[in-house]
Deep mutational scan, measured.
Amino acid sequence: KKKIKIYIENENGEKKTIEIEVEGDIDEIAKELAKKYNVKIVKIEP
């Protein structure tokens, strides 16, 4: 498992940072999160 930080922006332009532990393809997981929460991924840090 890797701990990563995902910087997101919602439709109101509010920026947030999510810190999660992931296993597998980080890009795939980030895309799923973006779709699920309707946010834009700004940056992903390993």
Rank of each mutant, 00 (worst) to 15 (best):
E28M: 10
D27Y: 14
E23V: 11
K16M: 14
V22S: 07
K5D: 01
Y37E: 03
I4L: 11
A34N: 02
L33T: 01
E14M: 11
K31N: 10
L33V: 05
K31I: 08
K16A: 14
I4Q: 01
T17R: 03
K15A: 12
V22W: 14
L33N: 00
K1L: 14
E21K: 03
I18F: 13
K2F: 15
K15T: 15
A34W: 06
I26P: 08
V22D: 06
A34S: 09
D25W: 05
K16L: 15
I29H: 04
I8N: 00
N38P: 02
E14L: 10
E45N: 03
K5I: 12
N38R: 11
K1Q: 07
E14G: 07
I26W: 13
K5R: 14
L33G: 00
K1E: 03
E32R: 14
I18N: 00
D25S: 09
Y37I: 03
K36W: 09
G13D: 02
K2G: 08
A34E: 08
I26L: 10
K40P: 03
E11D: 10
G13C: 05
E21F: 13
I29Y: 14
D27N: 11
K5M: 09
E45A: 05
N10S: 12
K40R: 08
G24F: 03
V39D: 01
V39Q: 03
I18Q: 01
I44P: 01
G24N: 03
K40I: 14
I41S: 02
I6H: 00
P46R: 09
L33S: 00
E11T: 10
I6K: 00
K40E: 04
K31F: 09
I41F: 05
I26V: 11
D27W: 15
K43G: 10
D27L: 13
E28I: 08
K35Y: 07
I4V: 13
I8F: 15
E45F: 08
K3V: 08
L33E: 00
K36H: 06
P46M: 15
K36N: 04
E11V: 11
E11R: 13
E23W: 14
I18R: 01
I44T: 02
N10D: 13
N10M: 15
I26M: 06
E11Q: 13
I20T: 03
E21A: 07
K36S: 04
E45I: 11
E14Q: 10
N12C: 13
E9T: 07
K36C: 14
N10F: 15
V42Q: 04
T17H: 08
E11N: 11
E32T: 10
L33Y: 15
K2P: 07
A34I: 07
K35R: 14
N12K: 12
E23L: 09
K5G: 00
D27A: 10
E23R: 08
D25K: 04
I6T: 00
K1P: 10
K1W: 14
N38G: 13
N38K: 12
K1M: 13
G13E: 02
Y37R: 02
Y7A: 02
G24I: 02
V42A: 03
I29T: 04
I44S: 02
K1I: 12
I41Q: 01
K15S: 12
K35P: 01
N12R: 12
E14W: 13
K35V: 05
I4H: 07
D25M: 04
K43N: 06
E9A: 06
V42Y: 06
D25A: 05
E19C: 11
K15L: 14
A30C: 13
A30T: 07
I26Q: 03
E19F: 10
I4C: 08
I41V: 07
V39F: 15
I41H: 02
K31A: 12
E9H: 06
E21W: 15
K40F: 10
E23M: 11
I8M: 14
I4T: 03
E23A: 09
E28W: 09
D27T: 10
G13L: 03
D25Y: 04
D25T: 06
I20P: 00
K16I: 12
E9Y: 07
E45W: 10
N38D: 03
E45S: 06
P46G: 09
K15G: 09
K36V: 05
D25L: 04
N38W: 05
I44F: 05
A30P: 01
L33K: 00
K40W: 06
E32V: 11
E28F: 08
K31Q: 10
K36I: 08
E11C: 12
D25P: 07
G24W: 04
E28K: 10
I41W: 06
K31V: 08
I6L: 11
I20M: 14
I20G: 00
E14R: 07
E14Y: 12
V22E: 05
K40T: 11
G13N: 04
A34P: 00
K2C: 13
K16E: 09
E11Y: 12
I6P: 00
I26Y: 08
V42E: 04
I6F: 15
V22N: 05
K2N: 09
N38E: 03
K40M: 09
K35M: 08
I6W: 03
K5S: 07
I44A: 02
K2T: 12
Y7G: 01
V22A: 11
V39N: 03
V39Y: 15
K2H: 12
Y37T: 03
I44L: 04
D27G: 09
E32M: 14
I6Y: 05
V39S: 13
N12T: 09
N12Y: 14
E45K: 02
Y37P: 02
E28C: 11
Y7W: 13
A30Y: 06
E32I: 12
K3E: 01
G24R: 03
P46K: 08
K1S: 09
K40Y: 08
I44Q: 01
E9N: 04
V42S: 03
E21P: 03
V22H: 07
K1T: 09
K16N: 11
G13W: 02
I41G: 01
L33H: 01
K3T: 08
I8Q: 00
N38V: 03
K5A: 05
G24K: 03
I18Y: 14
Y37G: 02
E19D: 07
I29Q: 04
E14N: 07
I26F: 09
A30Q: 04
I4A: 06
I41A: 02
E32H: 10
I4E: 00
K31M: 09
D25H: 05
K2E: 05
D25R: 05
K15Q: 14
E21C: 14
Y37L: 13
A30V: 15
A34L: 06
Y37C: 05
V42F: 05
I26D: 03
K31G: 06
N10R: 13
I4N: 01
N10P: 01
